[in-house]
Amino acid sequence: MSHKYIIIVGCGRLGTILVNRLSRLGHSIVIIDKDTGAFEGLSSDFSGFTIGGDAAESSVLQNAKINKADMFYALTNNDNTNLMLAQIAKDIYKVPFVIARVNDPQRDIVYKNLNINTICPIIIAADELIKRTEG
């Protein structure tokens, strides 16, 4: 896998694990979170940038150089935030690869209507549990 410039919004448990692993794989990462305390979970060998700020404020995404990003992950725990950020990345800054996290599976239809690629951790966990149940 070649070297990528990746912007990730939301440094919760999922964001933290992802950032640490992607950084280890050699990608350039910018991680954005409203709460700068969220960055404490990042590993000591994390070599990317952290930005404390509300990504829904357009200057924050510009500071992250979103126009240069290869990938954009909206992983906050708020579906509306993820929806808006994913649209901005995809439709305005033309980031080639955009994924938004779906927290509430019932909202999946909104993301589909807007043509946004999604990942829903709850559905993935449920699918996995069913697979193991059916064994």
């Binding site: 829904a56 708020n78 579906d79 509306n80 935030t81 929806l83 808006m84 950020l85 909104v110 209507n113």
Partner: peptide, 14 residues
């Protein structure tokens, strides 16, 4: 802002 955007888009699409 993100809620207002989603509400509008939802109202339009759905």
């Amino acid at each position: 802002d993100e809620d207002n955007l989603t509400i509008s888009q939802q109202a339009k699409m759905e």
